[in-house]
């Protein structure tokens, strides 16, 4: 690892100012579970590393029935996994964060760091998207909010602009009853990245799908919403055939790569199967058996 300077600002303002002063050679570090690996591999060689560790109240997890859930970007995977509000109002998130890597990583890595890395293989983004998350991006002159699905731009690329820090993740209030499912398909090892990741939420009245969100990870340059697949089901009378069709449509929206977890073709096939299974599980959760 190339030598670097390490700074620990004690306020967000100070952190933003530092980023402004060093537009080209500074990197933000939170848990470090991704950045350190890249630095060790010399893929990134920042001269300055700015830690967010000392910024007060940067890892809050607050729930309000009207406002929904607000998560400080510095919250660690493990903190989100175990937060009572998350468990009771967003079981999909609890389930997802429970599956991130293993406890050693979950105790270090932060949700903000995870999203900013823009790694399509990781789990949290898809579930957050399926829950309509938006992110707050703060810079020295103010802040903006953005739907999470617009935040991911390309392979390891996000919409984060120079000088910006991701500071908060917001989810609208939880809807009940909400059918949900999270499938992390890891045939090599439960500690592996997903070969295919599926996060799905849906609401149904009798046997008609009122609304649905389907997000996928590990199958395209970014974590993505499979909107055409959603539309197959949205507003329709749910049937086995329609679930299959949704899976097949989702498979046309992805753009997987050959890698150690499988060929692109195999991953596409698995999208078909797992999207259908995710929908079936979500329906079971709201007691809709087909």
């Amino acid at each position: 690892m190339v030598k670097f300077e390490y700074l620990e600002p004690t306020s967000l303002k100070e952190a933003c100012a530092l980023l402004d002063q060093h537009p080209d050679d500074a990197k933000i570090i939170a848990g470090g579970t991704a950045l350190i690996i890249w630095m060790r591999m010399r893929l990134l060689n920042p001269r300055l590393v700015i830690s967010l560790e000392k910024i007060p109240d940067f890892n809050y997890i607050r729930y309000d029935d009207k406002d929904g859930l607000r998560i400080g970007a510095g919250a660690r995977h493990r903190e989100i996994e175990l937060a009572p509000a998350v468990r009771s109002h967003y079981p999909l998130l609890h389930e997802t964060f429970r599956k991130v890597a293993q406890p050693r990583i979950r105790n270090m890595g932060t949700v903000g760091g995870n999203l900013c890395q823009g790694d399509p293989l990781t789990d949290p983004g898809a579930s957050l998207m399926a829950l309509d998350a938006e992110v707050t991006l703060t810079h020295s002159k103010g802040k903006r909010t953005l739907a999470l699905e617009k935040f991911f731009v390309d392979y390891y690329q996000t919409d984060l602009q120079p000088g910006e820090i991701l500071t908060e993740i917001h989810l609208p209030p939880s809807i009940k009853p909400l059918g949900w499912s999270h499938i992390k398909f890891t045939p090599r090892s439960v500690e592996d990245f997903a070969t295919v990741g599926v996060a799905l939420t849906l609401r149904a009245q009798k046997d008609t799908c009122e609304d649905i969100r389907l997000a996928l990870n590990s199958v395209a340059p970014t974590i993505l919403r499979a909107k055409r697949a959603e539309n197959v089901l949205r507003g329709k009378k749910i049937s086995d055939g329609l679930l299959r069709e949704m899976g097949e449509t989702a498979a046309t929206e992805v753009d997987p790569m050959d890698d150690n977890r499988g060929s692109a073709e195999y991953k596409r096939d698995m999208v078909k199967v797992l999207v259908r299974r995710a929908a079936q599980e979500a329906l079971q959760r709201i007691s809709l058996q087909l």
Partner: peptide, 16 residues
């Protein structure tokens, strides 16, 4: 070698 690291070369973990 294309997978000379523990992210790409997996071995069974205790939970597997």
């Amino acid at each position: 070698p294309v997978n000379p690291n523990f992210s790409d070369y997996r071995i069974p973990s205790m939970r597997d």
